[in-house]
Amino acid sequence: MVWPHGFDDLRGAARRRLPRFMFDYVDGGSFAETALARNVAAVRAVTLRQRVLNDVSASDLSTTLFGETLAMPLMLAPVGMGGMLRKRGEIQAIRGAHANGVPMVLSTVTLCSVDEIAAATQIPFWFQLYVAKDRGFVMDLLARIKALGCRTLFMTVDLPVPGPRWRDQRSGLSGPPGLTGQWRRWREIVTHPRWALDVGLLGRPHTLGNLVPIMNGRLKLADFLRWSGQNFDPAVTWRDLEFIRNHWDGKLVLKGVTDPDDARRVADIGADGLVVSNHGGRQLDGSIGTAEALPAVAQAVGERLTVLADGGVRNGLDILRMLALGARGVMIGRAWAFALAAGGEEGVSRMLAQMALELRAGLALTGCARAQDAGPHLLGQLPSWWGR
């Protein structure tokens, strides 16, 4: 077959392979998906200065984030239930990331447990934490990932309650239990036999490995969706960060910050970094695009902490756009999820290699040899929202 090259190619290949309820789960956002669309539009609105006759022969994409050297300023963002895209999908994804010298941030809600991933790969990982109401479970989980060698924790702060996702309700993945939703899922499963064999049959067990100790025997994915609405803690405040710090002595990054005042508070509490993110457009549908929010956040914190960004990044040139707006590193979610669904470990590896090629070309054409030197001087005509 002709291997998919760009994001749209990967998305199309994933759509053909996945049952609708899994494709829509990855592809969709909350409510009417306005924030999802704004993320993409905001990134594409960023223009870059084309510069010529600069020596860019010593091209270097590498960077250092949180004490670790990366082959390029990119990492795989946490994607819940990634193991439902390919057989033991998180294991395949982290291997693809490692082959290209970039880290993967494992979600709290991976299909494979952190113990299984660590045993199968021997690859260092970063970890994303959802704070559950059961603080004992949180303490135990932090101890587990620390014992497995994790040194960088991403605490998601933009999900006090799950944002309603209409596409998931229509596809039968979420919504009230009953025969209608089950019929929709089974109809899709039987019409996607490759996925049904690879994931449905050979990819068992279909449990959320990290949550097994807390879900009281309820192990179906539908049970997780109900459990998350009941157990993600809406009472979490800035004071709870003291609890996290008391049980975590590694690097701490807060994910889900778009407001400059919140960014200053993140810096004030002594975190090591933040991610400018609106959860990929899956939470507050009225939020601005992350590229719109990034410059003000970066300016608000200066050099006090490391600023990362996600949302709307579809290729290597988009990575450069985010770096020019002030990010030190970029996270991708849907891109790697679609690559995994389309081609497994090889698909993730090829997608990352393609993004590295595109980033290198973008740097050269803006007269910049090193990714670490990218910044606002690469911007062309400033977007209308710049400086707000």
Rank of each mutant, 00 (worst) to 15 (best):
R264C: 09
G273Q: 04
D285Q: 07
H247L: 01
V266N: 06
D262G: 05
D272K: 01
K251I: 00
V275T: 12
D261H: 11
A271L: 07
R265L: 15
V266T: 14
R282V: 03
W248G: 02
G280F: 08
L284Q: 06
V257L: 14
L254P: 05
A263C: 07
V276N: 02
V253D: 09
Q283T: 12
H279P: 12
D272M: 03
G281F: 11
H247P: 02
V253Q: 10
G273K: 09
D249G: 02
G273L: 08
S277V: 11
A267Q: 10
G256K: 12
L254M: 14
A271W: 04
R265S: 12
A263W: 08
N278W: 05
H279A: 11
L252Q: 07
I269T: 15
G273S: 06
R264I: 14
V275D: 02
G250W: 13
L284F: 15
V257F: 09
P260F: 12
L252F: 12
P260Y: 11
A267C: 07
D259A: 14
D285I: 01
L274N: 11
D272V: 02
R282S: 05
H279E: 07
H279D: 09
D249Q: 14
D261T: 13
R264L: 13
A271H: 03
I269N: 00
H247V: 01
W248P: 01
V276H: 02
D272I: 02
R264N: 00
D268P: 00
N278C: 04
V275F: 02
D285E: 07
W248A: 05
W248M: 08
G256L: 13
V257M: 05
L254E: 07
H279Q: 10
L254I: 12
V276I: 02
A271M: 03
A263M: 08
R265G: 00
G250K: 13
D259S: 13
G280S: 04
V253T: 10
G270A: 12
I269S: 00
V266Q: 04
D261R: 14
P260Q: 11
G281C: 08
R264E: 15
H279N: 06
R265F: 00
L252D: 06
G270W: 12
D268L: 01
V253R: 07
L254Y: 13
G250D: 09
G280A: 04
S277I: 10
N278F: 02
R265N: 05
P260M: 08
